[in-house]
Design a protein around this nucleic acid. Structure first.
Length: 501
RNA sequence: GAUCCGGUAGCUCAGCUGGUAGAGCAACUGCCUUUUAAGCCGUGGGUCGUGGGUUCGAGCCCCACCCGGAUCACCA
């Protein structure tokens, strides 16, 4: 479209003109005046926060002669005839701007008046404090860096509509700058974890996202297809099996922080794609993993909050190590007063609680059902729940003292599973049998059962040293650290159902 | 998947027992040289989520559907 097309109807009337149309007309005018409305660079000397830090000591009415340049988004305009006040927002904060016609000259002053809330501008000026004591930049020069064509949400309430906040996160970030804090904490947490593990000589690796065979967890995968190879592929549901292949290969400490994809329900704690930390360390077992988890998470919490205690939903959660450790089966026995070796007692208890259990459910499945409904939701403070039934843990090694159990733990906080770890099963024959059991379960309709991975079996035959493995849900940890009550609040772009607009 | 709540101007929200669709902010005219949710005068702006139905008449009542939220279920 030629710019003139837009200006043709330019009249003083605003009938039926949307705000976008009005701004487009301004844009065209600028282009016609060869005032380029989309600049290439701007060099700034200060952030808004620098101004507050460096010049806050000014007396009311006092000026400082230092010339400063800043850039950001114009968030509010207050015109007073020949004077102008505005708010400039950058990534870090807000600073007030002041300009007057005398000092700036009429042309530049009129330029300022023509700017819209939302425009990106660069300014030159010097700091002073107004009569009312607000630190402000007296503008000596100003230029438009990017014209914004769409209005922003209401200045006082910001964008409140949850759906719009998720669908248009960029508006949310502009309009509700405090939510940036959540994502800064997320970034800082991941960075902390990475540094922490590197200090312990873990090596960060990257393994494939596209899998021929999905594995490492009980979950439904997303399917995709490689056109050239004419091959069905899956998006990974876990990092596990490839990382353990690397331990076979001789790396002794590896980790990956990666996105995994699970084709399942969405809830306040489930998003179809989420970020998982998995690490594996040769010559260790799940006890070592428990110590590592405790140490890592408490250090992380302390790093972010300068305390081991955080508040989540009005409840104080205390990450001071050591965390509580509870044996899963013992806990069920105590709580239900039943014999966990007796499948009938388990089944009756499950029925009594109206849990829908299939006829194929084993003792292990029943125990886990009871655990999920009776125990997990009650664990608010960080708690290791340990030694799971073997049937529901096909990649974990049998417990050294009890054949019915595996050496596994989950870390539960606020009723959410945060971490999952085990002494990795490294007996290829046992692993093969477990995969067979999974296949049988799948045939019986347990959709999420794992599939046979013969290459992984081959890797185990080559020899996997005794290894401890750990997975931590990054999103859920960030939920706790930021007091976010939905996983969508810690994802910049949470998955939303398609909406025809 | 079930139940409940919500979807009205760009944004935040009112809208009673069914009777011509409202406010604030934002926008547009004008005034205003230290305001700050600036102020004052005036103006424009609506497919009331979508589609049916009931009714003389529907934002409001009924049905179906779409999107979101909460709770529950699912996620062995």
């Amino acid at each position: 479209m030629k710019p003139t097309d837009i200006t043709e109807n330019q009249q003083s009337s605003n009938e039926n003109k949307t705000e976008e149309t009005i701004r487009l007309e301004k844009l065209t005018k600028l282009k016609n005046q060869t005032k380029h409305p989309f600049k290439y660079t701007f060099s700034k000397t200060h952030k808004t926060t620098d101004i507050h830090e460096n010049f806050n000591t000014l007396e009311t009415g006092e000026s400082n002669e230092t010339t400063v340049t800043l850039a950001g988004r114009l968030m509010a305009k207050r015109n007073h005839g020949k004077a102008f006040f505005g708010n400039l927002q950058d990534e870090f904060g807000i600073i007030q701007l002041y300009a007057n016609s005398n000092k700036l000259g009429e042309e530049t002053f009129n330029d300022i008046l023509s700017y819209d809330v939302g425009d990106i501008i660069g300014i030159v000026g010097n700091p002073f404090k107004t009569k009312r004591g607000e630190l402000t930049i007296k503008v000596t020069n100003i230029e438009l860096l990017t014209k914004s064509l769409l209005p922003l949400p209401e200045k006082y309430h910001g964008l409140q509509n949850i759906e719009l906040r998720y669908r248009h996160r960029y508006i949310d970030l502009i309009s509700n700058p405090h939510i940036k804090e959540t994502f800064k904490i997320r970034s800082k947490s991941i960075s902390f974890i990475r540094n922490y593990l590197e200090k312990k000589e873990f090596m960060e690796v990257e393994t494939p996202v596209l899998h021929n065979i999905y594995g490492g967890a009980n979950a439904k995968p997303f399917n995709t297809f490689h056109n050239e190879l004419e091959q069905n592929l899956y998006l990974r549901i876990a990092l596990e099996l490839h990382l353990k292949r690397l331990i076979v290969g001789g790396f002794e400490k590896v980790f990956e922080i990666g996105r995994v994809f699970r084709n399942e329900g969405i809830s306040y704690k489930h998003n179809p794609e989420y970020t998982l930390l998995e690490l594996y360390e040769a010559y260790t077992d799940y006890h070592d993993m428990m110590n590592l988890t405790e140490e890592l998470l408490s250090a992380l919490v302390f790093n972010i909050h300068n305390s081991y205690k955080i508040v989540y939903k009005d409840t104080e959660i205390d990450f001071t190590p050591p965390f509580k450790r509870i044996k899963l089966v013992e806990e069920i026995q105590n709580k239900c007063n039943i014999d966990c070796n007796n499948i009938n007692e388990l089944r009756n208890k499950a029925k009594e609680l109206n849990l829908n259990v299939s006829n194929e459910a084993t003792k292990g499945h029943l125990i886990m059902e009871l655990y999920d409904s009776l125990i997990e939701p009650t664990l608010i403070q960080p708690t290791f729940i340990i030694d799971h039934p073997w049937e529901t843990s096909p990649l974990a090694k049998k417990h050294r003292e009890n054949d019915n159990l595996v050496e596994r733990f989950e870390l539960i906080i606020n009723g959410m599973e945060i971490a999952n770890a085990f002494s990795e099963l490294n007996d290829p024959e046992d692993q093969f049998d477990r995969f067979q059991d999974q296949l049988k379960a799948k045939e019986k309709g347990m959709e999420d059962s794992q599939v046979m991975d013969l290459d992984y079996i081959q890797a185990l035959k080559q020899g996997l040293p005794p290894t401890g493995g750990l997975g931590i849900g990054i999103d859920r940890i960030v939920m706790l650290l930021t007091n976010s009550h939905s996983i969508r609040d810690v994802l910049l772009f949470p998955h939303m159902r398609d909406k025809n607009e």
